[in-house]
Amino acid sequence: MSKRNLSEKIKLQSYNDMFGEDENTEIVVQEQIKDVALSELYTFKNHPFKVSDDAKMEEMVESVKQYGILVPAIARERVEGGYELISGHRRHHAATLAGLETMPVMIKDCSDDEATVIMVDANIQREDISISEKAKAYRMKYDAMKHQGMAGGVTLDEMSETAGESSKTIQRLICLSNLSDEYLELIDSKKLGIAQGIDLSHIPEEHREVVLKVMKDMGLIINMEQSARIKNASKEGLFSEQWLREILNYKKPVVRKVVFNQSRLDSYFEPNMTNEDIEGIIVKLLDEWKAKGGRG
């Protein structure tokens, strides 16, 4: 297979490209649209996007009951029989809940990598996608495009152009995909920051497991300063569970600072007195106060 950019090969970079009105859009892969029994449609392998029974799904079910499935799903034939859904998992679920037996499907003849690119591009710009879903989806598309022989930087640039996000953001999200689902759930719920997640993505999995265990034991979530220290300690061979517990137990001393406004100082000290003179008098008075046991 040619090592050309998948986006150039498929000419199908977004959901709008699939169902837009541009007559010049070229689709290289073979396709046909037909009604397929819902029971013959199977979930895409490692599909990263969640299908939830939420308010939006309820609205979709009501729409399906009234109008049917207006936009065909996308699928490809399975060697085992039936079809693998590439795009349209939410429509398939809504059709099931609405009591339909079949739904319109665009059948495509495409490779694993081509199917992955289409699947991600068809979903990635939805507004309700979580950080973990984006991270997993971008990782799948990145790996699929890399299989075609594209250099990492070029792949990120192409993904950035398609998704409308900076290549740096996409790269950071891909890093997050190294984390376990438990970590990603913490990030999705905003308990753990993305920056901390990025730091943890660069340490070995066994160290991440220790961090998760200690956070649970101590009932806390690491901050940015702590995650940076953990990353450096892991890199330098200093990381251990004992070391981690010590730095998480460390409490910074409270920095105390007392500031007098100008009018209050003027009520006690002559205008020609220097700051050093004023400080000396205050310290002397405090020493006398301390000598009396801190009593007035």
Rank of each mutant, 00 (worst) to 15 (best):
K3L: 11
R4P: 00
R4A: 13
L6P: 05
S7R: 08
S7K: 12
E8I: 13
K9F: 12
I10L: 15
K11W: 09
Q13I: 13
M18N: 12
F19E: 11
N24G: 04
I27D: 05
V29A: 15
Q32M: 14
I33C: 10
D35M: 13
L38M: 03
L41N: 07
Y42S: 06
Y42D: 06
K45C: 11
D53C: 03
K56G: 09
V64Q: 05
K65G: 14
K65T: 08
L70P: 02
P72I: 03
A73S: 06
A75C: 02
A75H: 05
R76F: 02
E77D: 06
E80R: 07
Y83L: 04
L85R: 06
I86K: 04
H89F: 07
H89V: 08
R90F: 04
R91K: 14
H92D: 06
H93E: 15
A94E: 03
L97N: 09
A98P: 06
A98H: 08
M103V: 10
M103C: 10
M103I: 15
M106G: 08
I107S: 02
S111D: 15
D113G: 05
T116N: 11
I118H: 01
I118R: 02
D121H: 11
A122E: 08
N123I: 02
N123Y: 05
Q125P: 05
R126H: 14
E127T: 14
S132Y: 05
S132W: 02
R139T: 06
K141E: 15
D143S: 13
A144N: 03
A144K: 02
M145V: 07
K146D: 13
Q148C: 09
G149I: 01
E158A: 12
M159I: 03
S160Q: 06
G164T: 01
E165G: 02
E165T: 11
S166Y: 11
S166W: 08
S166I: 03
S167F: 05
S167L: 10
K168N: 05
I170S: 01
L173R: 10
L173S: 10
L173E: 10
L176N: 00
S177W: 02
D181I: 09
E182Y: 10
L184S: 04
K191E: 13
I194D: 00
Q196K: 01
G197K: 06
G197Y: 00
I198M: 01
D199V: 00
L200Y: 04
S201M: 01
S201K: 00
H202Q: 12
P204S: 07
P204E: 07
E205I: 12
E209P: 09
K213M: 07
K216H: 09
G219H: 09
I221G: 03
I222D: 02
N223E: 11
M224G: 13
Q226Y: 07
S227T: 01
A228Y: 09
K231V: 01
F239R: 01
Q242V: 14
W243I: 05
W243P: 03
L244P: 00
Y250M: 02
Y250I: 04
K251D: 10
K251P: 05
K252M: 10
P253C: 04
V258S: 07
V259R: 13
V259K: 12
Q262D: 13
Y268P: 00
E276K: 15
I278K: 15
G280W: 09
I282Q: 03
V283S: 08
L285A: 14
L286D: 08
D287M: 13
E288N: 13
K290Q: 13
A291T: 09
